[in-house]
Simulated assay, not measured.
Amino acid sequence: MPERKVIVESPVGLHARPAATFVQTAAKAPIDVTVAKPGGAPVSAKSILSILALDVKNGEAIVIHAEGDGADQLLDELAAIVTHP
């Protein structure tokens, strides 16, 4: 399963607008996508409540997993959202 480990660079972490953009991008894809803090339980990247519950702050790492056709491209898009504030 393809994955990306990225450091969240948004000043607000993975909250508010970055979280909404992240979820909207994930939701457009017809494949399974999860996100987790390293060593933590993965949650659906398509659920705004699940993403906000992770409480990811600026400078923290997340691991994004996707499985299916187009997974690598989707992972690149999601990684760009959190690494380019």
Rank of each mutant, 00 (worst) to 15 (best):
M1Q: 04
P2M: 09
E3M: 02
E3R: 08
R4A: 08
K5S: 12
K5H: 07
K5P: 05
V6T: 07
V6G: 02
V6A: 09
V6E: 01
I7S: 01
I7M: 11
V8D: 00
S10E: 00
S10V: 00
S10K: 00
S10A: 02
P11V: 08
P11D: 07
V12A: 06
G13S: 01
H15C: 02
A16N: 02
A16C: 04
A16D: 10
R17L: 15
R17S: 08
P18T: 09
A20C: 12
T21Q: 14
F22E: 08
F22D: 03
V23M: 11
Q24H: 03
T25R: 11
K28S: 07
A29E: 08
A29W: 04
I31Q: 12
I31E: 11
D32P: 03
V33I: 15
T34V: 02
V35Q: 06
V35R: 07
V35P: 06
A36Q: 13
K37Y: 00
P38W: 11
G39T: 15
G40A: 15
A41H: 12
A41P: 04
P42C: 05
P42H: 04
V43K: 10
V43R: 12
K46N: 15
K46E: 10
K46C: 14
S47W: 02
S47L: 13
S47E: 14
I48Y: 14
I48E: 13
L49D: 14
I51N: 07
I51F: 11
L52K: 05
L52C: 08
L52G: 06
L52H: 04
A53G: 03
A53R: 14
L54N: 13
D55L: 13
D55H: 13
D55W: 11
V56M: 11
V56K: 04
K57A: 13
N58S: 00
N58Q: 01
N58H: 03
G59P: 02
G59C: 01
A61D: 13
I62T: 05
V63Y: 10
A66I: 01
A66E: 03
A66S: 00
E67G: 04
E67R: 10
G68N: 01
G70V: 06
G70L: 09
A71C: 08
A71P: 03
A71K: 01
D72R: 03
Q73C: 04
L74K: 02
L75Y: 03
D76G: 02
A79T: 03
A80D: 13
A80R: 14
A80L: 11
A80W: 09
A80T: 13
I81G: 10
V82S: 05
T83E: 10
T83M: 11
P85V: 01
P85K: 01
